[in-house]
Design a binder for these strands. Structure first.
Lengths: 242, 242
DNA sequence: AAGTGGTCTAGACCACTTC
DNA sequence: AAGTGGTCTAGACCACTTC
């Protein structure tokens, strides 16, 4: 992926944006970027379109391309940087991935909700995986995931202490690239408070999702409970492509 | 929008998919589509990429393009009913729009953040509009919005007691069709608790956004603080188009 | 070997904004 | 008039899958 031109341009531009290289929030025009990077304008546009879809920049025809001030105002936490949608890739900070503390790992029968979400039959089993995610020594997320055992029957204790999405990508050559997400807020439970070092008045952010493999197979149902300070979900919404 | 080639192709393909014209779930290859539609392969790819981003199809290099069976089976989780992205259209319940209680309406100078977000110059003014949104007698959202006065200099007290986005659509023939949203959670303030009938341990969900008119003009910066029970932000995420 | 999607180019023309 | 992003073309070559 890194050998692809538009990805190189994208990474470089993102770095320059975060380095505040454009204090007036205006990027060079596409034709200048094309020349300075030595690539076609199409490749520049492709990189810019992705940055726009990620909410980092926006474009105004006739005027130029601008850094989204909302995006830089606070530190964005959840950003889809990697080759898949997993927590490990999305919560990188300065290239450092969050570490994992395994809380629970077992195989259970899929209940009705899980059967429907993961296209399973009665009697099918799923892994239940509960993990605490830690970023720079701060536990910030409790993650409970359910994965059909038939998709990765060989999953071991060691595997679930690392990135499962990366594991699947490497071993199965099938990345998790799509998801339906629901983002919510809720009061913290006693368990949340203990694990995430929250006061009783401090809430959790909740991200619930169904994750799909690239071929459309539902891979995991996951509920993530976050220290509210670490949840900032950015999205670009457009009615154009309806 | 309908005069754009890739949109025409997109609409037509979507219609053909829903008409079950591809019972084997396989679409013609891109070069054939290019020929049969009489457009370039790039335009075909553009339409297909959008359909893939919407979760309707998926592509497999070397194999072809396929209808996503999951999509036809499952009802889409998130559906935007209205013609714009405003609260009035998005929070309809059984066709009933939320009502509005105006808390504050004044004209103030745009601070630096607003100048940057709304393309304003020092000395430009914005409306500051604070409103309480009420659904079936329950106040659920405190909304603070900032809109440049030069976009709608004639805005009156009566107008801000209704849907501003619908007003702009009717009067200016320019709909709010794009936005960058940030979704967060936070402890409730005393003000939140009073207006939204929350206990001190109950949080708010926060949706912060810049809303754009169809031509890309930033129209409003808005911060919405919601009773957490009423915030559920749904999104379909895909790395395909990125 | 043939088929199919992915990436990329160089350039044309259009639509809108700014000067 | 000049600048800037949007759309589109025709074609080249690459990577992966299927036969």
């Amino acid at each position: 992926m890194a050998d692809v031109i538009y990805m190189k341009v994208l990474q470089d531009l993102k770095h320059r944006i975060y380095s505040n290289e454009f204090p007036d929030k205006k990027l060079p025009d596409e034709r200048s970027l094309s020349e300075s990077y030595g690539v076609s304008r199409s490749s520049i546009k492709r990189a810019l379109n992705i940055l726009a879809a990620q909410g980092i920049i926006f474009k105004k025809r006739g005027s130029g391309t601008f850094v989204n001030p909302l995006y830089l105002k606070n530190q964005p936490i959840f950003h889809n940087e990697g080759s898949n949608l997993g927590v490990t890739d999305s919560y990188q900070i300065d290239g450092q991935a969050p570490s994992i503390k395994l809380l629970n790992f077992q195989v259970v029968p899929a209940n009705e909700d899980l059967q429907q979400a993961l296209f399973l039959s009665p009697g099918d089993f799923v892994y239940q995986i509960e993990r605490l995610r830690i970023l720079e020594d701060v536990p910030f997320m409790i993650e409970t995931g359910f994965i059909p055992i038939k998709i990765i029957p060989e999953l071991s204790l060691g595997d679930v202490e690392g990135s499962i999405f990366n594991y699947v990508e490497e071993k199965k050559k099938n990345a998790v690239t799509k998801s339906f997400m629901s983002v919510m807020a809720a009061p913290s439970t006693a368990n949340d408070q203990a694990l995430l070092a929250l006061k009783p008045t401090e809430p959790v952010g909740i991200m619930e999702g169904i994750f799909f493999l690239d071929d459309g197979t539902p891979f995991e149902v996951s509920t993530m409970r976050l220290n509210y300070k670490y949840m900032r979900y950015n999205a670009f919404v457009s009615l154009d492509s309806e």
